[in-house]
Computed example of a mutant assay.
Amino acid sequence: MTTARPPGHEEARPYVRPRDRWWFARRRSLAVFVLRELTSVLVAWTVAYLLLLLGAVADGTTERFAALAARPWMVALNVLALAATAFHAVTFLNLAPKATVVRLDGWRVPAWMIQGGNHTAWLAVSALLAYLVLRSS
């Protein structure tokens, strides 16, 4: 049996705070965080593209792959993916000192040394790969 409520005495509902769809645009650090997460889509595209290249090499259909890769929209997508992947890599390497604490004989290695080591290793591996690829052509 329900009881009648007097006028003006509705059942209380919990307060639901309104959501701000642009919460990340309020601070630069949050905007960079969201942008970095969005670049993961283009990083995934880069991986898929390289797997397609490996498949074309394995199947002997590199001419078809080269024709696809030469299309203007594919070139534009890959240039965008390269920029996004570079941004993703740089921001990832810059976050390393916050995620990893390195101690040597009780001394904490400064953040700039960890970042510098990461960026130097990235540059060295990139230079080695560029040398190997350009030497063979």
Rank of each mutant, 00 (worst) to 15 (best):
V16F: 06
V16K: 05
R17E: 15
R17K: 13
R19P: 00
D20R: 08
D20W: 04
D20K: 07
R21E: 14
W22Y: 12
F24A: 08
A25M: 15
A25P: 00
R26W: 08
R26Y: 10
R27P: 01
R27H: 11
R28P: 01
S29A: 14
L30A: 13
A31Q: 11
A31S: 14
L35H: 13
L35R: 10
R36C: 09
E37G: 11
E37T: 07
S40E: 14
V41H: 08
V41A: 09
V41L: 12
V41I: 12
L42W: 02
L42Y: 03
L42F: 07
L42C: 02
L42K: 04
L42E: 05
A44P: 02
A44V: 10
A44L: 14
W45V: 04
W45R: 05
T46P: 04
V47P: 00
V47A: 07
A48K: 04
A48F: 08
Y49S: 05
Y49R: 05
Y49M: 06
L51M: 14
L51S: 09
L53I: 07
L53M: 11
G55M: 07
A56S: 15
A56C: 10
A56T: 05
A56G: 14
A58K: 09
A58C: 06
A58Y: 09
D59W: 14
D59E: 09
G60E: 03
T61H: 14
T61C: 12
E63C: 04
A66C: 07
A69P: 03
A69M: 06
A70H: 12
R71V: 06
R71T: 08
P72Q: 02
P72D: 04
W73R: 09
M74Q: 11
A76Y: 04
L77W: 05
L77S: 11
N78V: 04
V79N: 13
L80F: 10
A81E: 00
A81M: 01
A81C: 03
A81G: 00
L82C: 11
L82T: 15
A83D: 09
A83M: 14
A86I: 15
F87E: 01
H88G: 00
H88W: 11
H88M: 02
H88D: 03
A89W: 02
V90S: 04
T91P: 00
L93V: 10
N94A: 15
N94V: 13
L95S: 12
A96E: 06
P97F: 04
P97W: 05
K98Y: 12
A99T: 10
T100M: 11
V101E: 14
V101Q: 12
V101L: 10
V101R: 13
V102E: 07
V102M: 08
R103H: 06
R103W: 05
L104H: 11
L104D: 08
L104R: 14
L104W: 13
D105P: 00
D105V: 03
G106L: 01
G106Q: 01
W107I: 07
W107K: 08
R108K: 08
V109R: 00
P110M: 06
P110V: 03
M113D: 09
M113W: 14
M113N: 02
I114F: 02
I114Y: 03
I114N: 00
I114E: 04
Q115M: 10
G116L: 05
G117C: 07
G117D: 01
H119C: 00
H119N: 08
